[in-house]
Write a protein that binds this DNA or RNA. Structure first.
Length: 892
RNA sequence: AGACCCGUAGCUCAGUUGGUUAGAGCGCUACGUUGACAUCGUAGAGGUCAGCGGUUCAAGUCCGCUCGGGUCUACCA
């Protein structure tokens, strides 16, 4: 069964994925006795397509899941998609507008528009699923969830109702971030800032000079604030002034004293506009100031600014207003200024702070029962991370997390869009209000028009996905009953790892912590692993407009296979580190896969030759005698130990690199060469060692390269499917320190002879005559004769007795364990002595450093005894080497 | 404005709790391919670990400052 010349991913990937899926390997068993390992997949937008951010997420999560599944855990990876409210609704509306519908909301009405959005989602949802499959993701499709599934909706309503009852959700007029373009509020976290050139105006204002970058809002001022200790303004505090605006209203402002005002800035007097600034609103609440709204939800000036300005856009009004002020001689100065504009991350349009009646989550209110006390949401989310119950990787992100909590304001959760979970509140007339999943039975109730912030439902995702759909459909159950009766929740929550990009730590991770602890009394996950961004080779964010550097995961999978994509994303990957992904990295992955494939071909042929009739699965490396075979097994043992440690530490890139080094350097470059010649090539134990070792490498590679390894596992005769094979553990029977050391000396011997060949500029075709003078362990050298001969291309190797030294007349290399002489006709003596002198100088320099250390009394007394002992041993080795080289140089 | 991260070979990065003469991949140079290798192999060049100071017997590693790059948060009357 000869393997094909090279691996063709397009030919096998689909088929392999289908076999995995049909075997049930992805499906977790809630009745199993195994310890659970659970990951909730961050749900991609249901209507989206796979980008490199998703690809790195899938690669890392699948790596963990496959590793844990093979390690004997009941591994569950819950896939899902998100309804991405604002994004989806605006896409559908834009499509309708492109088709010529001017006002889709107005023309279709709520019910019809929501139906069309749902259709749109249903039509495009399949694409992202196929793409997740194409990556090789071994997630449990039988448990796939969508944030709009009925039982998830039930959970959303149940949590809302309970929070309302506990006073953690309230309705009230507050300053919200209003996007006039999307006609909805957005949360603080959905805003980003951009610096823009602007003007800073200082104008006369009653007895004050007041600065502002937004003069058009000044008719909305209801106070002037000064610092209580500011001498200049002290006499005015408490007084009231009338300020007439040219062609505008005359407003009444009270002078208040507030610590918030910085006397150093500007004139020390600050116009307070409570309706259009978060900070001013807070001040207004404290001082009981009235609100005057001068900008409306349509982004135009309201009647409150007077007839002249009303109806203008903000920009128009600013221009007009400034002109009037200047004309009236009230403008003191106008300066250039850099204003940081707040923009909506979705629409990229300016956001206006406006007063509005909205639903909020109270984050400061001590109403959450936790460990026998009542604490606030803020406190509880701080505590679980502080106590280490939830561990964030990379650790420094914890600081960012705490900082975010410190600055967190009440969270506005209502949105004025139609696509999403509608707020479960029902009104009748002015007075009656009911909160619950369904309206009361009697007539006349109308549901709140608004929907919930998408993150409100995503925040429940680690557990709402584990709620049993049938239980979720039962009427009359409260939240804790729903959870109690859902076997998956009981078995698989809290989840093990939350793996996502650090850019949504606040949006999502923090909110899951907050909502899940409140709703279930459990943390949502034990470890948060935050991966970095995937950047292009120039270190910029991937962008389709930059064709030459943008990597499209689906195109790459199409061209080179999912394994290449995955390994490229995993190698060099560490928590929180951005990753530059370019062609080179992809080529590197491809080469490695090619190397694995070719090594498999050789392994297959070799095992076939030695153990012709043998059942391969029964080949076990017991009673291994040859030092090189023992060396291979002990190297494998070391490798397994290291890889396991790196995986446990979440340093996946290191794990891949560690396997790569060993696979290429130890297995391919040495062992696979060694088994081509006698005596290894004829020993039966070799077949067992080679087969066992190679299959172990396949297992180690599998979480990184699932397709090619699965294919090879089958081709080479592995038992069952690799996806279910047991993960390698270090085998304590495979410890032979002496053999391992001796073979290491053999490897150095090879390098030494190759060095001589290069230095003496001998043709590679020249067959060498080599004499080896071991300082110890002659047996291993002798046992490796043919191997060394092959690796250095020698026609003759002679092993002298232990203790003899190399003769004159040959070119010699010196090592602590041996001397080796190569006989050639016209040796380049100068080159040899240059090399030996350099080696001697190095050894001397090193020795003198070691001796300096050993002569230091403090080192001897204060350093760890092991360090001292090691230094002594090293010094001894150097002395031996120096003596040998000195002798050799003396002779020539 | 504050916080955090990063600065190690031409490039991308490793460097474990301080302890051999600082490593790998890619690239580069030279040579060669004997059948596992859309290649691969061998050898080689290349680093004052950003700079300064401190702690220590010992610093790429810990601390402080400076410079350079990046990110986030806040605020800007």
């Amino acid at each position: 069964m000869a393997l094909e010349k090279y691996f063709e991913p397009q030919k096998y990937e689909r088929e392999i994925y289908r076999r995995w899926e049909e075997s049930g390997a992805f499906v977790a068993d809630s009745d199993s006795e195994k310890p659970p390992f659970v990951i909730t997949m961050p749900p991609p937008n249901a209507t989206g397509t796979l980008h490199t951010g998703h690809a790195v997420m899938l690669a890392i999560e699948d790596l963990m899941i496959r590793w844990k599944r093979m390690s004997g855990y009941e591994a569950l990876w819950v896939p899902g998609t998100d309804h991405a409210a604002i994004a989806t609704e605006s896409v559908v509306i834009r499509n309708l507008q492109a088709e010529g519908m001017a006002d889709p909301r107005g023309e279709l009405g709520r019910e019809e528009l929501v139906r069309r959005i749902a259709d749109y989602v249903a039509n495009s949802q399949g694409r992202i699923r196929q793409q997740i499959r194409a990556m090789g993701s071994s997630c449990d499709w039988s448990r796939e969830r969508y944030t709009m599934d009925p039982q998830l909706h039930r959970c959303v309503d149940a949590v809302f109702a309970r929070m309302f009852r506990d006073g953690l959700i309230y309705r009230g007029p507050r300053i919200v971030n209003w996007d006039p373009h999307l006609q909805t509020t957005i949360s603080d976290d959905e805003i980003y800032y951009q610096d823009r050139p602007a003007k800073f105006y200082t104008m006369r204002y009653g007895p004050f000079l007041v600065g502002t970058s937004r003069p058009e809002t000044k008719p909305g001022d209801t106070a002037v604030a000064v610092h209580p200790d500011d001498e200049r303004w002290r006499e005015h505090i408490g007084k009231t002034y009338e300020v007439p605006w040219p062609k505008g209203p005359t407003i009444t402002v009270r002078v208040i004293a507030d610590e918030h005002v910085d006397p150093e800035t500007g004139t020390g007097a600050l116009g307070v506009t409570p309706a259009h600034s978060h900070v001013d609103f807070e001040m207004a609440e404290k001082h009981d100031l009235p609100l005057i709204q001068v900008i409306g939800e349509d982004g135009r000036m309201t009647e409150a600014v007077g007839e002249h300005y009303a109806g203008m856009t903000v920009e128009e009004c600013r221009e007009a207003f400034v002109a009037e002020i200047e004309q009236a001689g009230l403008m003191e100065k106008v300066e250039d200024y850099t204003q940081s504009m707040s923009l909506c991350y979705r629409s990229k349009q300016p956001v206006e702070p406006l007063p509005k009646e909205q639903w909020f989550v109270a984050v400061e209110k001590p109403a959450v029962p936790w460990r026998g006390r009542k604490v606030s949401l803020k406190q509880v989310m701080r505590e679980v991370v502080q106590s280490g119950e939830i561990h964030i990787l990379p650790e420094h992100q914890e600081k960012t997390y705490f900082h975010w909590i410190d600055n967190l304001r009440d969270w506005c959760i209502s949105r004025q869009i139609w696509w999403g979970h509608r707020i479960p509140v029902w009104y009748r007339g002015e007075e009656d209000m009911y909160v619950g999943h369904r309206p009361p039975r009697d007539e006349g109730w109308a549901q709140d028009e608004d929907t919930l912030d998408t993150w409100f439902s995503s925040a429940l995702f680690t557990w709402s996905t584990l709620v049993d759909p049938e239980v979720g459909a039962e009427a009359g159950l409260d939240l804790s009953e729903i959870l109690e009766r859902s076997p998956d929740f009981q078995r698989f929550h809290p989840t093990s790892v939350m793996e996502t990009g650090y850019d949504i730590l606040f949006f999502w991770v923090a909110r899951m912590i907050l909502m899940t602890i409140y709703a279930t009394g459990e943390i949502p996950f034990r470890t948060v692993y935050l991966h970095g961004l995937v950047l292009d080779v120039d270190g910029d964010k991937m962008s389709k407009t930059k064709h030459e550097t943008c990597v499209d995961p689906m195109d790459t999978i199409e061209e080179t296979g999912a394994d290449v994509m995955r390994l490229a994303l995993l190698s060099g990957n560490a928590p929180g580190k951005d990753l530059k992904l370019g062609r080179e990295r992809l080529i590197g992955s491809k080469r490695l896969i090619n190397k694995i494939w070719n090594a498999a071909k050789l392994t297959d042929a070799t095992v076939e030759r030695i153990a012709t009739a043998c059942d391969r699965a029964s080949l076990a490396p017991d009673r291994v005698e040859h030092p090189v075979n023992r060396w291979m097994l002990s190297r494998l043992r070391t490798l397994v130990t290291r890889v396991n440690r790196r995986l446990q530490d979440f340093t996946f890139g290191d794990a891949a690199e560690t396997i790569r080094q060993s696979f290429w350097g130890e297995l391919c470059d040495f062992y696979l060469e060694a088994v081509k010649v006698e005596p290894l090539s004829e020993l039966e134990e070799t077949a067992a060692v080679l087969f066992h070792t190679f299959m172990a490498y396949l297992k180690l590679w599998h979480p990184f390269l699932p397709f090619v390894t699965e294919k090879l596992w089958g081709e080479l005769g592995g038992e069952g499917m690799l996806i279910n094979a047991p993960w390698p553990q270090p085998d304590d029977a495979h410890v032979w320190p002496e053999d391992a050391n001796d073979v290491a000396a053999v490897l150095r011997l090879v390098v030494a002879v190759r060095g001589i060949r290069a230095e003496q500029e001998l043709e590679p075709a020249t067959k060498l005559k080599v004499e080896v003078y071991p300082k110890s362990h002659a047996e291993t050298f002798a046992a490796s004769r043919a191997i060394v001969a092959r690796l250095v291309r020698a026609e003759e190797i002679h092993f002298a007795t232990v203790g003899s030294t190399a003769p004159t007349g040959a070119t010699v290399a010196i090592d602590p364990s041996f001397e080796v002489a190569v006989r050639i006709g016209e040796a380049d003596r100068e080159a040899e002595s240059r090399r030996l002198k350099k080696q001697l100088d190095d050894a001397r320099r090193h020795l003198s450093e070691l001796e300096k250390r050993l002569a230091n009394e403090s080192f001897l007394t204060r350093a760890k005894p092991e360090a001292v002992a090691r230094t002594r041993a090293d010094a001894e080795t150097q002395r031996t080497t120096i003596a040998s080289i000195g002798e050799r140089l003396g002779q020539t």
